[in-house]
């Protein structure tokens, strides 16, 4: 439900990253990394991005989203695994003291500009 705010932040991060001395820059693609645990609805984000990028150099840019899997590590037996369902118990020692290593990302990775 906060995808519009996220799309706004994405655009300002992009605009800040584009060198100021670049004449008439046009962004062809934005690469994002979104963890599976992040509270973001992809369709909604694409829709918001399309609307809010209008009249900026990101208008019409392709949004490429890399989904980051949820990975966890057990603090007791140090087993590392990918959490497929939402059960956060160590499958190796069946204990519960775990550390989430990835899956909450929400990052602008890079931009691809037209030459």
């Amino acid at each position: 439900m906060h995808e519009m705010g996220i799309a706004q932040q994405m655009i300002s991060i992009a605009l800040e990253a584009i060198p100021k001395d670049l004449p008439d820059p046009r962004v062809e693609q934005m690469n994002l990394r979104v963890g599976r645990l992040a509270a973001v609805v992809e369709d909604s984000l694409r829709f918001c991005f399309e609307i809010i990028s209008k009249d900026t150099c990101l208008e019409g840019a392709k949004l490429v989203i890399e989904t980051v899997p949820v990975k966890a590590r057990c603090r007791r037996c140090h087993h590392e695994w990918e959490v497929e369902d939402v059960v956060f118990t160590c499958p190796s020692c069946e204990r519960g003291e775990i550390e989430v290593l990835s899956g909450r990302e929400l990052e602008v990775a890079s931009l691809e500009l037209a030459d």
Binding site: Q9, M10, A14, I18, L106, V108, A109, S110, L113
Partner: peptide
Amino acid sequence: MEINIQKRVLEAN
């Protein structure tokens, strides 16, 4: 041209 960013979207928050 590719610009590498690697910035968290919620960094401001």
